[in-house]
Simulated scan of single mutants.
Amino acid sequence: MLLRVTFVAAARSSPLLAERFEDDRPLDQAGWVEVQRAAHDLVPLSVAELRYCSPTPRSRSTGEGLGYSPLVQLALRDCDMGRWRGLTLGEAMAREPAAVDAWLADPRSTPHGGESLLDFISRVGNWLDTRPIEDGDRIVAVAEPSVIRAALVYALKAPPATYWNIDVRPLSTITVTGHAGRWNLRFEGPPTQLSQT
């Protein structure tokens, strides 16, 4: 049996340029409005037998706002950014430009003292590979955009540098189908059609 895992990007908690590493802020007003607007298209995903979310307040609130009642998964947490936690990329660059350059260039580097990009991708991929097929074949997971980017790099067996070329917008969805070690990217119609398939 193949699994179908649909990732839903959490609604925003700040303007894009103010995004912070390991952002623990709750949804802002614009984020709640986005959830309400997207609900018609995304609520049908709640038919999934397994519903998960990353532990951030905005992922949990997005999942709850869409009626998923998701189970928090620590493996879907954002990349551990060490001493850069809470900073924007611009702030980290202003403080440690050489370290940020090294981090962007080498997926094994950890100049911030946290988790490497390669380890982050592997952690999220391991979560994907260990989903229990016997509990149902449809899964929905609300997660931070960074987590979804890591999952896609893993699923496609793409080079880690591909991570920087994937743009995940708030409340966008992407589906991967398959099983441990063999995943395919799947483009589908609106979620309202998915509940009938």
Rank of each mutant, 00 (worst) to 15 (best):
A94G: 12
A143V: 04
G67Q: 12
A30R: 08
Y68E: 11
D23I: 15
G114F: 12
L156H: 11
V35A: 02
N184F: 05
V142F: 03
L17T: 14
L118N: 13
A155W: 03
D41C: 01
A150Q: 06
G82K: 05
I166E: 11
S46Y: 02
I133A: 12
R4P: 04
E134I: 01
P70L: 01
V72F: 00
N184Y: 10
I121T: 07
P26D: 09
E34S: 13
S172E: 15
L104N: 12
D129Q: 08
D119Y: 08
F21N: 02
W32Y: 13
S172M: 06
N126C: 07
I133Y: 05
W164E: 01
Y163D: 01
G86R: 14
S172G: 14
E22D: 15
T173C: 15
P55T: 09
V168G: 04
D28A: 04
R77W: 04
D106R: 10
P191R: 05
L16I: 06
R83I: 02
S146F: 00
P70C: 02
V33E: 15
T6F: 05
F21P: 00
P70G: 03
V124L: 04
E144Y: 00
G114M: 09
D119P: 03
R182Y: 01
G189H: 12
Q73T: 08
A99E: 14
G114P: 11
I148S: 06
V168S: 07
P15M: 06
D101Y: 02
L42P: 05
Y154K: 03
T192W: 00
L87G: 05
P57C: 01
G178W: 02
M1L: 07
A30K: 08
E91W: 08
W164F: 11
P107S: 09
G86C: 10
P55L: 03
V142E: 12
T110N: 07
R77C: 07
A150F: 08
I139M: 00
H179P: 00
D101M: 06
A141S: 04
A102E: 15
L71D: 13
A10Y: 03
N165S: 13
S146K: 08
L171A: 08
P55Y: 13
L128G: 05
G189F: 01
A9W: 00
C79W: 12
G86W: 15
S14A: 15
N126T: 12
A48C: 14
P191T: 13
F21R: 09
R182G: 06
F120E: 03
R149W: 11
S195V: 12
D78N: 15
W164G: 07
A30F: 08
V35T: 09
G67E: 04
E34K: 09
Q73K: 04
L17G: 07
L194H: 13
A98R: 06
A39H: 13
S122R: 15
P111G: 08
L156E: 08
T88H: 12
F187E: 14
V153W: 15
L156A: 14
L156C: 08
G125K: 04
W84S: 05
P145I: 02
R58K: 13
V8L: 01
